[in-house]
Design a protein around this nucleic acid. Sequence first.
DNA 1: GCGTTGTTACCTACTAGTTGGTAACATAGA
DNA 2: TCTATGTTACCAACTAGTAGGTAACAACGC
Lengths: 200, 200
Amino acid sequence: MGRDAEETRRRLLRAATEEFAERGLAGARVDRIAAAAGASKPLLYAYFGNKDDLFDAVYNRVIAEFVRQTPIDPQDLPGYAGRLFDWSVAYPELVRLTFWDRLERSGQGARQPVVLEANRSKVAAIQRAQDDGGISGRFPAAELLLLITTLAGTWAFAQLGPDGPEDGDVAAARATLLRAVRLLVEQDGSGDLGRGASDH
Amino acid sequence: MGRDAEETRRRLLRAATEEFAERGLAGARVDRIAAAAGASKPLLYAYFGNKDDLFDAVYNRVIAEFVRQTPIDPQDLPGYAGRLFDWSVAYPELVRLTFWDRLERSGQGARQPVVLEANRSKVAAIQRAQDDGGISGRFPAAELLLLITTLAGTWAFAQLGPDGPEDGDVAAARATLLRAVRLLVEQDGSGDLGRGASDH
DNA sequence: GCGTTGTTACCTACTAGTTGGTAACATAGA
DNA sequence: TCTATGTTACCAACTAGTAGGTAACAACGC
């Protein structure tokens, strides 16, 4: 463990991510973060300014990575929902941080340019798919996207127990989620009663 | 404002509800609650034990009232969802407290007997409606209920801005929610393309 | 030598919870 | 009806401990 500023920075961010996801902004302790990172408090302040800015840094990194890793496929929205769900289960920090942000900071993190831009492009993609007739146009594209992300995120969150999920339930929950999304996007009167591109 | 223990208790509970809904357990300040209630801190402690117990008292009262006021009608689940939504918009404290409970206390509030019992009876009612053939049996009753409550609650929460909802959007959001629920519960191949008992 | 990377020791402000008491009301005996 | 006694409702001020944040000092490595 030589002196590597970049590496130390990363350790601090990592520790902060865990602490904030677990306890939120008000509940998090700066001392605990520094200790968990094996660094000192002044160093943390030198790198990140203050507690609030540190939360920003944490949230921005997590959300940016999330957006980058979950590209939308408007032709297969159930599959997209499944990927959101999987990500949310694998990294519960994401969902928790998002809820903390909503509760403690009026969702200011969700109003960042990165997020807004990603959203716009996803809505546009859905809109196109609706125009092409691949999926139902019964919901406006923006509402459909919100419906899907809401469902995937909260659904994962609801399933996640205090000490991680019980394995059996997760698969069932995932299946239910996909099924629900399929119902939301399938064309009126299509004979398609459930089998779709997202099954395998 | 004479000496009325019961009334003072109520004022404290009211103030605590607002404070906890707004800031959560860690963010809430006991002094602020006492001040807002026009009472003293020792009195608060005499009546409610400690901060955590006070949160319990607040949450229990709110959730019990909520359960009491939103009876299920398994024949009209979109209407039920609409009522949940309306309640959540009218009393945002309910949704916020629920999320705080999940984040800060691993959802211990949601595991109370009152809640569990209410849930059981609702699941049973849905099950019966499914057996009778009134609504689709494609989702297990328990999952369907969770799907609906999740959607209604989070949907309302997502719509609610920092300073209350903008009126126009709420009606649209409500309509979208009902529509989504209708899709989830309507029978396969029913020609019913949206008009239902819950419209008016 | 000197900028970068780091730590120790400290400070101020705040916070949950308590102590030691007062003011209002109730009731019983004279 | 008045006063003594007990009780309930309530509070100003304090305590012990904790929080975020900083100033002053040390060591590494180019």
